[in-house]
Design a protein around this nucleic acid. Structure first.
Lengths: 365, 365
DNA sequence: CGATTCAACTAAACCGCGTTACCATCAGCG
DNA sequence: CGCTGATGGTAACGCGGTTTAGTTGAATCG
């Protein structure tokens, strides 16, 4: 019984009442003082602030949400199977950037992973009904996507990352008036041009494209952009194969492309995981990079410049992208009008994995 | 003025009052009915539930937190510079596993990234004062870590992932009684044994270790474990070099080890990013893997088996790990006593990157 | 000097839920 | 028939903030 029982004061979070008592004023005065509202003298304000500081007071996010209607948090949902983002660095970087924008505003990020877009819509509905978040950031928009509609109906502010290509897209469904959806889209078409021009300049005329998941808006856009570029430049072949973004399907797609009667001399891979997989398949077949085949990764990450040969990659700063999206969302929450804005064109970083094609192409000669 | 203004009812989240009115009872009755408490008849209960369902009612997380003391959310902080987790798949997998455990319990995950452990402690204090989370999951414990102390003082329940090696560690500082900290630690020592025995069995006697960030508890543990194993087996050399987990420093460490008067014949790399970097440096020097040098990655991920040669790797399922941690935290929140538990020993997956050492070792002639 | 105005502050209501105390109604019982 | 004890329900309060309506006391003004 010699144990020291009271080695610390019972921890209880300080409330406004504590501050009020300590400062000798009412809780209303405390509220006025701490929120920079008129109604208290300067001296009182200072005193209250000092006391609150000393006590380590922080507004209860719950109480504030209850009266002020603001949850002080924004949400982000990832509707991809976990294994499909095994090696992808994009999302972690994106989240990192979102954080950076949110932190100064004391906004928390609520993060959740679900199985599919339906579940995501359900979650939005739940978050809305629970009043858990003030707005959300939507990623991986689909070609036919129920989420904008859902969010619009709920009146939940949102920024859609990589949404509809052009502002005023006639295909975009008409959304309810209370929609508070901003859109920040990457210029996939311009980026594809960048890549194709790079390959074309090296002499490539047959390009294979290991695309992402069918149904994703950016997958569709990239495929369309490649086709358009091919037509414009008069390429012999420009074949896109869809996958699920994993190394397995990336490898499978690469095998399929390599086995075609007229195989491509260059591959564009929609993420770095599949790019590595493609390199691996090439090695398997005894193809040298870039002598026999060139490879471009649509995403730069550590492995792209760690690997040998280093991979030519599209460098888009995911963290800055996320930061801009978060800023947009905050603006939306501040009452700004929804905006459609385009992210700056990414940069193509040529490295060792792209070069001139073989004179005859392999396999067809 | 011909615009249709009222294309949707003004969205307002339904409250208990709405349900009560609709069902023709008081809000208390609704509360009883929906929380499975006695005080209402079965028929009323069913009716209320039906109405609530129809209205899409969900308890306001704020209101519930305010009265019930439970925020319905748990927190996780990452105190690593964003660039140091560029290619690492560990955390995303971990988070994915945490989610899976949390989702059925309708617990949200609040996620934040900060610069250092001090900021992390600040954030814990803030979260606690704001009542934003019910508990937290702590990762990357340090050798001398202020976080357990902070959490203990606040009385904030937490599960520390990869904490103190052995339960009852005499070095562990005495924490206040109200501490509600569980600990779930990976058996780094056992895992290191697994790797060293594998290499020893192949004939290696000089092992280099590209370790993680100095100051991280698991880095220290792995270094100590390697030293112990080396002593036990009578290895010639077992040198650990610390890094910051990035490819850059991984490569630098590899160069340093390769340039030693008596270079190692095998490398153990504390994550897959540095393993790839090491492979790259080896290639740079004209060293063939595994003929001239063997490489083991302390983490399996897509690239480990996509790369050629495929990397021998330690397979520990980060998602299951995260799931267990989350379950522990939930148990803690349910009032269970804190526990110290050890994660099952990971599995070593031998692949192409490990083999017998060169007869004389390279470079030492 | 009494009426008016304003600054400074307080009391009270509210947000949406959980919870406790209380209050009808009715069956069972002596 | 009056008392007891369930049963099924309601009113009221608290959580920790914000906000609105009041209430002072002192300065200003006619």
């Amino acid at each position: 019984m010699s144990e020291i029982e009271s080695d610390a004061p019972p921890p209880r979070r300080p409330t406004m009442k504590d501050v009020a008592r300590e400062a000798g004023v009412s809780t209303s005065a405390v509220s006025f003082a701490l929120n920079n509202r008129p109604g208290v003298s300067d001296s009182t304000r200072r005193r209250v602030i000092r006391v609150a500081d000393r006590l380590g007071w922080r507004p209860s996010s719950a109480a504030r949400a209850l009266s002020g209607e603001s949850a002080g948090a924004i949400g982000m949902v990832l509707a991809r199977p976990a294994d499909s983002l095994g090696g992808e660095s994009f999302f972690l970087q994106l989240v990192s950037g979102i954080q950076a924008s949110l932190a100064p505003r004391d906004q928390a990020l609520v993060f959740q992973m679900v199985d599919d877009v339906q579940a995501e819509c359900e979650l939005y509905r739940r978050w809305w009904a629970e009043g858990r978040v003030d707005g959300v950031i939507v990623v991986d928009p689909r070609v036919s996507d129920p989420r904008p509609e859902t969010l619009a109906v709920l009146g939940l502010p949102a920024v859609i990352i990589g949404g509809m290509e052009a502002p005023g897209n006639p295909d975009a469904p008409q959304l309810p008036r209370q929609a508070r959806l901003s859109n920040i889209w990457a210029d996939d078409s311009g980026a594809m041009d960048l890549i194709v021009r790079h390959l074309y300049g090296l002499g490539h005329r047959r390009i294979g494209h290991i695309a992402g998941t069918p149904g994703y808006a950016h997958t569709a856009r990239r495929i369309a952009s490649l086709r358009a570029a091919a037509r414009r430049l008069g390429l012999e072949h420009a074949v896109s194969v869809t996958t699920d973004f994993t190394d397995r399907q990336g490898a499978k797609a690469a095998r399929r492309l390599f086995s075609a009667p007229v195989p491509p001399t260059a591959l564009i891979c929609d993420n770095e995981v599949m790019a590595v997989a493609a390199v691996s398949v090439a090695a398997e077949r005894g193809l040298l990079i870039p002598r026999d085949v060139s490879v471009v990764s649509w995403e730069d990450s550590v492995i792209c410049h760690t690997l040998h040969p280093q991979l030519t990659a599209l460098v888009r700063k995911a963290d800055e992208f996320g930061g801009r999206a978060a800023s947009q969302l905050l603006a939306l929450l501040d009452g700004d009008a929804p905006r459609q804005l385009q992210d700056p064109l990414p940069r193509l970083q040529p490295r060792e994995s792209t070069g001139a094609p073989p004179a005859q192409g392999f396999g067809s000669g």
